Amino acid sequence: MPANIGIVGLGLLGSAIAYRLLEARFLVTGYDPLVQRSDALIQLGGTVATAPEPVFTQCSVVVLSLPTSEVVGKVLSSVALARGAVIIDTTTGDPRDAEKHAKTLRSAGGVYIEANVAGSSVQIRNGEAVVLIGMDDSQAKNQHYGPNGDLVESVLTAIAPRRFIIGPVGAASRFKLVHNLLLGLHRAVLAEGLNFAESLGFEPQTTLDVLRETPAASAVMATKGNKMIASEYAPQATLSQHLKDVRLILNLADEIDASVPLSAEHSRILARAEELGWGGQDNSAVIEAYRNGKFSAGE
Protein backbone atom coordinates (compact mmCIF):
# COMPACT_ATOMS: atom_id res chain seq x y z
CA MET A 1 0.00 0.00 0.00
CA PRO A 2 1.37 3.47 -0.82
CA ALA A 3 2.72 5.53 2.08
CA ASN A 4 0.44 8.23 3.44
CA ILE A 5 2.27 11.59 3.45
CA GLY A 6 0.95 14.50 5.48
CA ILE A 7 0.92 18.14 4.44
CA VAL A 8 0.11 21.03 6.76
CA GLY A 9 -0.43 24.22 4.76
CA LEU A 10 -2.17 23.95 1.39
CA GLY A 11 -1.44 27.36 -0.10
CA LEU A 12 0.34 27.92 -3.40
CA LEU A 13 3.40 25.84 -2.51
CA GLY A 14 1.66 23.24 -0.35
CA SER A 15 -0.96 22.48 -2.99
CA ALA A 16 1.76 22.15 -5.66
CA ILE A 17 3.63 19.70 -3.41
CA ALA A 18 0.41 17.74 -2.85
CA TYR A 19 -0.03 17.51 -6.61
CA ARG A 20 3.52 16.18 -7.05
CA LEU A 21 3.08 13.58 -4.31
CA LEU A 22 -0.24 12.36 -5.68
CA GLU A 23 1.27 12.15 -9.17
CA ALA A 24 4.00 9.95 -7.65
CA ARG A 25 1.25 7.65 -6.31
CA PHE A 26 1.57 8.55 -2.64
CA LEU A 27 -1.51 8.95 -0.50
CA VAL A 28 -1.81 12.50 0.86
CA THR A 29 -3.57 13.71 3.99
CA GLY A 30 -3.58 17.48 4.35
CA TYR A 31 -4.76 20.27 6.59
CA ASP A 32 -5.37 23.95 5.99
CA PRO A 33 -7.70 26.28 7.92
CA LEU A 34 -9.11 27.66 4.65
CA VAL A 35 -11.94 25.47 3.36
CA GLN A 36 -11.34 26.28 -0.31
CA ARG A 37 -7.78 24.99 -0.06
CA SER A 38 -8.97 21.76 1.56
CA ASP A 39 -11.58 21.36 -1.16
CA ALA A 40 -8.85 21.77 -3.78
CA LEU A 41 -6.88 18.90 -2.21
CA ILE A 42 -9.95 16.66 -2.33
CA GLN A 43 -10.35 17.47 -6.02
CA LEU A 44 -6.73 16.43 -6.58
CA GLY A 45 -7.45 13.08 -4.90
CA GLY A 46 -6.15 13.73 -1.40
CA THR A 47 -7.77 13.37 2.02
CA VAL A 48 -8.46 16.29 4.32
CA ALA A 49 -7.99 16.42 8.08
CA THR A 50 -9.99 18.82 10.25
CA ALA A 51 -6.98 19.80 12.38
CA PRO A 52 -3.19 19.35 12.31
CA GLU A 53 -3.17 16.59 14.95
CA PRO A 54 -4.65 13.80 12.75
CA VAL A 55 -2.08 14.55 10.05
CA PHE A 56 0.73 13.84 12.52
CA THR A 57 -0.92 10.73 13.97
CA GLN A 58 -1.74 9.20 10.57
CA CYS A 59 1.49 10.04 8.71
CA SER A 60 5.08 9.15 9.60
CA VAL A 61 6.33 11.86 7.21
CA VAL A 62 4.73 15.32 7.33
CA VAL A 63 5.53 18.21 5.00
CA LEU A 64 5.08 21.71 6.41
CA SER A 65 4.42 24.56 3.98
CA LEU A 66 3.45 27.49 6.15
CA PRO A 67 3.61 31.30 5.91
CA THR A 68 6.35 31.85 8.52
CA SER A 69 8.64 29.90 10.82
CA GLU A 70 6.65 31.29 13.76
CA VAL A 71 3.58 29.47 12.46
CA VAL A 72 5.67 26.30 12.17
CA GLY A 73 6.55 26.62 15.86
CA LYS A 74 2.90 27.01 16.83
CA VAL A 75 1.90 23.94 14.84
CA LEU A 76 4.69 21.77 16.28
CA SER A 77 3.84 22.84 19.83
CA SER A 78 0.15 22.03 19.30
CA VAL A 79 0.56 18.37 18.32
CA ALA A 80 1.94 15.19 19.85
CA LEU A 81 5.12 14.30 17.97
CA ALA A 82 5.58 10.53 17.70
CA ARG A 83 9.01 8.98 18.07
CA GLY A 84 10.46 8.45 14.62
CA ALA A 85 8.32 11.14 13.01
CA VAL A 86 9.93 12.98 10.11
CA ILE A 87 9.13 16.64 9.45
CA ILE A 88 10.07 18.10 6.07
CA ASP A 89 9.78 21.86 6.43
CA THR A 90 9.50 23.84 3.17
CA THR A 91 8.71 27.11 4.95
CA THR A 92 10.99 30.07 4.22
CA GLY A 93 11.69 31.49 7.65
CA ASP A 94 14.22 32.58 10.23
CA PRO A 95 17.19 30.14 10.27
CA ARG A 96 17.32 30.33 14.07
CA ASP A 97 13.73 29.12 14.24
CA ALA A 98 14.64 26.14 12.05
CA GLU A 99 17.41 25.27 14.51
CA LYS A 100 14.89 25.44 17.38
CA HIS A 101 12.44 23.23 15.50
CA ALA A 102 15.17 20.65 14.90
CA LYS A 103 15.96 20.62 18.61
CA THR A 104 12.26 20.10 19.40
CA LEU A 105 12.09 17.14 17.02
CA ARG A 106 15.28 15.59 18.37
CA SER A 107 13.98 15.76 21.93
CA ALA A 108 10.81 13.96 20.77
CA GLY A 109 12.83 11.29 18.96
CA GLY A 110 11.96 12.64 15.53
CA VAL A 111 13.81 14.06 12.54
CA TYR A 112 13.56 17.60 11.21
CA ILE A 113 14.66 18.32 7.63
CA GLU A 114 14.80 21.74 6.04
CA ALA A 115 13.63 21.55 2.44
CA ASN A 116 13.63 25.12 1.18
CA VAL A 117 12.25 25.47 -2.32
CA ALA A 118 14.14 27.55 -4.88
CA GLY A 119 11.34 28.19 -7.32
CA SER A 120 7.68 29.13 -7.55
CA SER A 121 4.63 26.93 -7.02
CA VAL A 122 4.32 26.58 -10.79
CA GLN A 123 7.94 25.43 -11.04
CA ILE A 124 7.37 22.88 -8.26
CA ARG A 125 4.26 21.56 -10.03
CA ASN A 126 6.24 21.23 -13.26
CA GLY A 127 9.21 19.52 -11.59
CA GLU A 128 11.50 22.45 -12.39
CA ALA A 129 12.31 23.74 -8.88
CA VAL A 130 15.38 23.00 -6.77
CA VAL A 131 15.17 22.00 -3.11
CA LEU A 132 17.84 23.09 -0.62
CA ILE A 133 18.31 20.57 2.19
CA GLY A 134 19.44 21.20 5.76
CA MET A 135 19.82 18.28 8.20
CA ASP A 136 21.53 17.32 11.45
CA ASP A 137 25.31 17.42 11.17
CA SER A 138 25.79 13.64 11.11
CA GLN A 139 23.07 13.16 8.52
CA ALA A 140 24.38 15.97 6.34
CA LYS A 141 27.91 14.53 6.39
CA ASN A 142 26.62 11.10 5.40
CA GLN A 143 23.94 12.54 3.09
CA HIS A 144 21.39 10.27 4.76
CA TYR A 145 17.84 11.20 5.72
CA GLY A 146 17.56 9.21 8.93
CA PRO A 147 15.75 6.00 9.98
CA ASN A 148 13.05 6.38 7.29
CA GLY A 149 15.64 7.46 4.76
CA ASP A 150 14.31 5.54 1.77
CA LEU A 151 10.80 6.92 2.22
CA VAL A 152 12.08 10.45 2.80
CA GLU A 153 14.28 10.18 -0.29
CA SER A 154 11.24 9.08 -2.33
CA VAL A 155 9.14 11.97 -0.99
CA LEU A 156 11.84 14.55 -1.72
CA THR A 157 12.39 13.11 -5.20
CA ALA A 158 8.66 13.40 -5.89
CA ILE A 159 8.67 17.03 -4.72
CA ALA A 160 11.76 18.05 -6.70
CA PRO A 161 14.15 15.83 -8.66
CA ARG A 162 16.98 18.35 -8.18
CA ARG A 163 18.22 18.76 -4.61
CA PHE A 164 21.34 20.02 -2.85
CA ILE A 165 22.34 19.18 0.72
CA ILE A 166 23.58 22.55 1.94
CA GLY A 167 24.64 21.53 5.45
CA PRO A 168 23.22 21.31 8.97
CA VAL A 169 19.79 22.62 9.91
CA GLY A 170 19.76 26.39 9.49
CA ALA A 171 22.13 26.34 6.52
CA ALA A 172 19.36 25.73 3.99
CA SER A 173 17.28 28.62 5.33
CA ARG A 174 20.28 30.92 5.15
CA PHE A 175 21.10 29.82 1.62
CA LYS A 176 17.45 30.25 0.60
CA LEU A 177 17.69 33.89 1.69
CA VAL A 178 20.76 34.30 -0.54
CA HIS A 179 18.75 32.80 -3.40
CA ASN A 180 15.74 35.00 -2.71
CA LEU A 181 17.89 38.12 -2.50
CA LEU A 182 19.20 37.48 -6.01
CA LEU A 183 15.89 36.38 -7.50
CA GLY A 184 13.92 39.24 -6.01
CA LEU A 185 16.40 41.84 -7.23
CA HIS A 186 16.27 40.30 -10.70
CA ARG A 187 12.49 40.88 -10.67
CA ALA A 188 12.86 44.44 -9.41
CA VAL A 189 15.47 45.23 -12.06
CA LEU A 190 13.24 43.79 -14.77
CA ALA A 191 10.30 45.84 -13.50
CA GLU A 192 12.39 49.02 -13.43
CA GLY A 193 13.81 48.35 -16.89
CA LEU A 194 10.43 47.62 -18.50
CA ASN A 195 8.87 50.68 -16.89
CA PHE A 196 11.81 52.85 -18.00
CA ALA A 197 11.54 51.53 -21.57
CA GLU A 198 7.79 52.18 -21.65
CA SER A 199 8.34 55.70 -20.33
CA LEU A 200 10.75 56.25 -23.20
CA GLY A 201 8.05 55.25 -25.64
CA PHE A 202 9.17 51.70 -26.47
CA GLU A 203 6.47 49.08 -27.01
CA PRO A 204 6.60 46.68 -24.01
CA GLN A 205 6.43 43.33 -25.82
CA THR A 206 9.05 44.37 -28.35
CA THR A 207 11.26 45.57 -25.50
CA LEU A 208 11.02 42.20 -23.76
CA ASP A 209 11.57 40.23 -26.96
CA VAL A 210 14.70 42.20 -27.86
CA LEU A 211 16.15 42.08 -24.33
CA ARG A 212 15.78 38.28 -24.28
CA GLU A 213 18.27 38.14 -27.18
CA THR A 214 20.89 40.30 -25.46
CA PRO A 215 23.41 39.85 -22.63
CA ALA A 216 20.78 41.44 -20.33
CA ALA A 217 18.58 38.33 -20.64
CA SER A 218 17.66 36.41 -17.49
CA ALA A 219 15.45 33.50 -16.48
CA VAL A 220 13.19 36.01 -14.73
CA MET A 221 12.34 37.55 -18.10
CA ALA A 222 10.87 34.19 -19.14
CA THR A 223 8.85 33.64 -15.96
CA LYS A 224 7.75 37.17 -15.08
CA GLY A 225 8.23 39.43 -18.12
CA ASN A 226 4.91 38.70 -19.82
CA LYS A 227 3.05 38.92 -16.51
CA MET A 228 4.45 42.40 -15.95
CA ILE A 229 3.60 43.53 -19.48
CA ALA A 230 0.04 42.19 -19.31
CA SER A 231 -0.50 43.23 -15.66
CA GLU A 232 -1.56 39.61 -15.12
CA TYR A 233 -0.77 38.79 -11.53
CA ALA A 234 -2.40 35.42 -10.80
CA PRO A 235 -0.09 34.42 -7.95
CA GLN A 236 2.68 31.88 -8.32
CA ALA A 237 4.27 33.36 -5.17
CA THR A 238 2.84 36.48 -3.56
CA LEU A 239 4.45 39.89 -3.29
CA SER A 240 3.82 40.10 0.46
CA GLN A 241 5.51 36.75 0.99
CA HIS A 242 8.62 38.03 -0.75
CA LEU A 243 8.55 41.23 1.27
CA LYS A 244 8.59 39.02 4.36
CA ASP A 245 11.67 37.26 2.96
CA VAL A 246 13.45 40.55 2.21
CA ARG A 247 12.86 41.67 5.78
CA LEU A 248 14.40 38.39 6.98
CA ILE A 249 17.39 39.14 4.72
CA LEU A 250 17.77 42.61 6.22
CA ASN A 251 17.53 41.29 9.78
CA LEU A 252 20.12 38.60 9.13
CA ALA A 253 22.43 41.06 7.35
CA ASP A 254 22.18 43.41 10.32
CA GLU A 255 23.14 40.59 12.70
CA ILE A 256 26.25 39.64 10.74
CA ASP A 257 27.13 43.20 9.69
CA ALA A 258 26.73 42.46 5.97
CA SER A 259 26.10 45.28 3.50
CA VAL A 260 22.89 44.83 1.48
CA PRO A 261 21.92 48.33 0.27
CA LEU A 262 20.02 47.08 -2.78
CA SER A 263 17.88 44.83 -0.58
CA ALA A 264 17.13 47.78 1.70
CA GLU A 265 15.87 49.73 -1.31
CA HIS A 266 14.03 46.66 -2.56
CA SER A 267 12.11 46.40 0.69
CA ARG A 268 10.87 49.97 0.27
CA ILE A 269 9.77 49.26 -3.32
CA LEU A 270 7.90 46.11 -2.25
CA ALA A 271 6.32 47.90 0.70
CA ARG A 272 5.09 50.60 -1.66
CA ALA A 273 3.53 47.97 -3.95
CA GLU A 274 1.90 46.37 -0.92
CA GLU A 275 0.50 49.74 0.17
CA LEU A 276 -1.02 50.07 -3.30
CA GLY A 277 -2.91 46.82 -2.74
CA TRP A 278 -0.77 44.31 -4.62
CA GLY A 279 0.44 42.23 -1.65
CA GLY A 280 -1.74 39.20 -2.35
CA GLN A 281 -0.91 39.16 -6.04
CA ASP A 282 2.07 37.60 -7.82
CA ASN A 283 5.46 39.05 -6.93
CA SER A 284 5.75 40.35 -10.51
CA ALA A 285 3.32 43.07 -9.39
CA VAL A 286 6.38 44.88 -8.03
CA ILE A 287 6.26 46.78 -11.34
CA GLU A 288 3.13 48.57 -10.09
CA ALA A 289 5.28 50.47 -7.59
CA TYR A 290 7.07 51.97 -10.59
CA ARG A 291 3.93 52.58 -12.62
CA ASN A 292 2.32 54.54 -9.82
CA GLY A 293 3.38 58.15 -10.26
CA LYS A 294 3.65 58.78 -6.52
CA PHE A 295 6.47 56.29 -6.04
CA SER A 296 10.10 57.44 -6.06
CA ALA A 297 13.27 55.66 -4.99
CA GLY A 298 14.40 56.21 -1.44
CA GLU A 299 11.10 57.53 -0.12
Rank of each mutant, 00 (worst) to 15 (best):
E255W: 08
E153T: 13
H242T: 12
L10D: 02
T68Y: 15
A273G: 08
L185W: 03
R25P: 01
Q139D: 11
S263W: 00
V131H: 10
N283P: 00
A222Q: 07
L181H: 09
L156I: 12
T50G: 00
S218A: 12
E153F: 07
V210A: 15
K74S: 14
T223L: 04
T68E: 13
I133C: 11
I5H: 04
W278A: 10
V35H: 05
A188K: 13
D39F: 07
L182H: 11
I166S: 03
G279S: 12
V169P: 04
A49E: 06
L182R: 06
E99F: 04
G146V: 02
I229W: 02
A188Y: 11
Q139W: 11
V169K: 07
Y112C: 03
G170I: 00
V220H: 05
G14E: 05
F295Y: 15
T207G: 13
V55T: 10
K244S: 06
P235Y: 12
H179C: 12
G127L: 06
E53C: 01
F175W: 07
V130E: 13
L252W: 15
H242F: 15
I287V: 15
A160N: 02
G109N: 15
A171W: 02
A82E: 10
V246C: 14
G9N: 09
V72F: 11
E274T: 04
F164V: 07
L190P: 13
R272C: 14
I249Q: 04
S259R: 14
